[in-house]
């Protein structure tokens, strides 16, 4: 097996220090983030200024949950765009896959 990429491994870069001392309070678990994800994203689409401190802090501190929330938001946005009659991104562009056969 290939080793873990050695570059920067273990180095306390400014970015890594920022991650290590990030304030992720109030506590919110990944499970609870998943539970709230759908309502949170719909609230953001209704009101881009929507604020949920626990969700916001969790998403800053958990890259995986952050990606999934951003993805859900992008998917709903693209659906809304399509439903309004816009063509949106072409199939095969950055966020939109080509049609699947199944």
């Amino acid at each position: 097996m290939n080793p873990t990429p050695p570059s920067e491994s273990g180095s306390l870069t400014p970015a890594a220090i920022g991650e290590l001392v990030l304030d992720t309070t109030p506590w919110l678990s990944c499970d609870e983030c998943f539970e709230r994800m759908d309502t949170h994203v719909e609230a953001l689409l209704r009101d881009p200024g929507h604020h949920d401190l626990a969700m916001d802090r969790h998403l800053q501190g958990c890259a995986a949950c952050q990606e999934e929330v951003q993805s859900l938001r992008a998917l709903l946005t693209s659906e809304g765009t399509a439903r309004r009659g816009d063509h949106g991104p072409e199939a095969g562009s950055a966020d939109q896959p080509g049609p699947l056969t199944r």
Binding site: V41, E42, L75, L76
Partner: peptide
């Protein structure tokens, strides 16, 4: 019913797909 059912359903697929890609 706190969100649309489709939104609720999508998050399951997004979580699984992201996990599988990683």
């Amino acid at each position: 019913g706190r969100s649309r059912f489709t939104t609720w359903a999508y998050k399951f697929a997004i979580l699984q797909a992201a996990t599988d890609v990683r």
